[in-house]
């Protein structure tokens, strides 16, 4: 089973080309915009008013897109290769663990090296500095990395990697499950429920509190271990739904 699961993960990671292509385009587009901003800054001698998105943070896009394309495209081809649904279940889970781990590791390395180097120049500030003093944005660019935005850096390097991994893993698993049910009536019901939660919960104060509570658990919780455990347990519960979903999936 282990070899088959690994083969499935390998197929998923090497045959999901569109997410890599989109990631490449986004990075290229971001790079062009950043170069233009740098040129304007150097020529005019002034900076400010906008933010630079950390390049490694774009890897999050890869995780999200892979979680859409793996169930939508790869499953059918996987079955055509004679693969069993059980193998796809564990293989896809392994793919998301690898993707979330790699994205989290690379983003963390960038956050502590390249992002820090950029912030050390006179034109840039970090998210935390802007939160303390929003006026800094008038004459600085903000270096935006989700690690700092979500406050994960407060718990040290190890927890930065693990907290980010747990959140990305939950995100991938949830998107995978959501994509997998789109061809069923309950997928449409789920769409309506999510749209209703966003539109109804946000304007109504008590419901908004529930939404805030939820995001506090999966992202902003001050206790890193709690946030990690919450994300992993929730991810396991959501992913378990894929067993009956894929067992009944028509190719």
């Amino acid at each position: 089973m282990g070899k088959k699961v690994w083969t499935t993960a390998k197929i998923n990671l090497t045959n999901t080309k569109i997410p890599y292509l989109v990631l490449g385009c986004i990075i290229a587009y971001g790079l062009v915009l950043d170069v233009i901003s740098v040129i304007i800054t150097v020529v005019s001698g002034t900076a400010g008013g906008s933010f630079f998105f950390s390049f490694a943070a774009y890897l999050w896009v890869l995780v999200i897109l892979a979680a859409i394309f793996i169930p939508a495209i790869n499953f059918r081809r996987f079955v055509n290769l004679g693969g069993k649904r059980e193998t796809f279940f564990w293989g896809s889970l392994t793919s998301y663990a690898i993707l979330a781990g790699a994205a989290s590791l690379v983003n963390t390395i960038f956050f502590y090296t390249i992002d820090r180097l950029i912030i050390s120049t006179e034109y840039f500030v970090g998210v935390e500095a802007v939160m303390r003093d929003p006026a800094l944005m008038d004459n600085h660019y903000m270096m935006l990395n989700m690690i700092e935005l979500f406050g994960w850096h407060e718990h040290g390097v190890f927890f930065v990697i693990v907290q980010q991994f747990a959140f990305l893993f939950l995100l991938a698993v949830a998107i995978h499950t959501f994509t997998a049910i789109q061809d069923k009536w309950y997928g449409w019901v789920a769409d309506v429920v999510i749209a209703a939660i966003i539109s109804v919960f946000t304007p109504i104060a008590p419901l908004r509190t529930a939404l805030v509570w939820f995001f506090n658990q999966i992202i902003f919780h001050p206790n890193a271990l709690w946030q990690i455990s919450f994300c992993i347990i929730l991810a396991a519960a959501i992913y378990a739904l894929n067993k009956p979903i894929f067992a009944r999936k028509v190719i």
Binding site: I11, R76, R77, N80, L81
Partner: peptide, 10 residues
């Protein structure tokens, strides 16, 4: 195996 089924582009 269904008619016209596709494989990964390997």
């Amino acid at each position: 195996i269904e008619s016209g089924s596709k494989q990964f582009n390997m």
